[in-house]
Design a protein around this nucleic acid. Sequence first.
DNA 1: GTACGTGCAAATTGTTTGCAGCGTG
DNA 2: CACGCTGCAAACAATTTGCACGTAC
Lengths: 149, 149
Amino acid sequence: MRNKRLKDIKEKLAARDYRLTPQRELILEIFAENSDRHLSAEEIYDLIRQKNPDIGLATVYRTLELLEDLKVIQSINFGDGCARYEFTGDRHHHHHLICLECGEVEEVDEDLLEKLEQSIEEKHGFRITDHQVKFYGICRRCQEKFATT
Amino acid sequence: MRNKRLKDIKEKLAARDYRLTPQRELILEIFAENSDRHLSAEEIYDLIRQKNPDIGLATVYRTLELLEDLKVIQSINFGDGCARYEFTGDRHHHHHLICLECGEVEEVDEDLLEKLEQSIEEKHGFRITDHQVKFYGICRRCQEKFATT
DNA sequence: GTACGTGCAAATTGTTTGCAGCGTG
DNA sequence: CACGCTGCAAACAATTTGCACGTAC
């Protein structure tokens, strides 16, 4: 299954005459191993150097740009001053819960947005292709922290 | 009415021992005159210099930070590499429609999110204090442009 | 051998900071 | 006079770019 994904990506690349180089594969590996996190370019760079110290930060940025173009990953801004990425893959659409206290990011499965989208398309004549929903607040753990203080 | 808003802001500032200087007032004026747009720091800087050429970019940034702190304005990231701002004012909460073709940003009145928020609070124990919803797609005008081509 | 890819260093861009001087309560 | 506020220039941090070399079809 994992190999299928890799093969898919390789085909997407090939369709544009791009190659699946060891560096690119390593970056994809990092993503697969950290699918629960939202890594920044710098963080990916640090992780990747543990596997291959000779990789350049510019390569990381270039690869991220490429993968985003191919819609393999997508960039999200959590307001901490750098872009963060996540696999788009075949995953179900989801929202993000951002804790204002500890910065932790949780994910919630998509729900209840179809009706809203439909009404917007009708009222505004705007054809929606994607959306991004973020909720800010205090996560359960931080609420408990406060409660016991 | 407008004056009331200004007076409110002045009070908010005073509550923290800050002053409503001519520069700050000018920036608020720019916001009022461009309430249909989402200006970036640089754009505000350019507009403001037409009124007073001696103002510094750093002052703009510092004022924006201050006004955001006071919740007079709020920052939004539309993915174009810089922060953009809008009055929070007494306006109704709203979503943003971002056209991937021309970059134009439209606003939609808030709707239908209460149920979703409630279910998230219950399932995740996450206390939501704010949210941000963006829809990406093609605006009416761009669709028409394509249709006639 | 012709592109694509890479690492490195330098360049760019949005934003922040240090500092000396100004102005207002 | 104390302190907030300013403009300017320098500092910073995330990201991009130029370039010469490497490498896969």
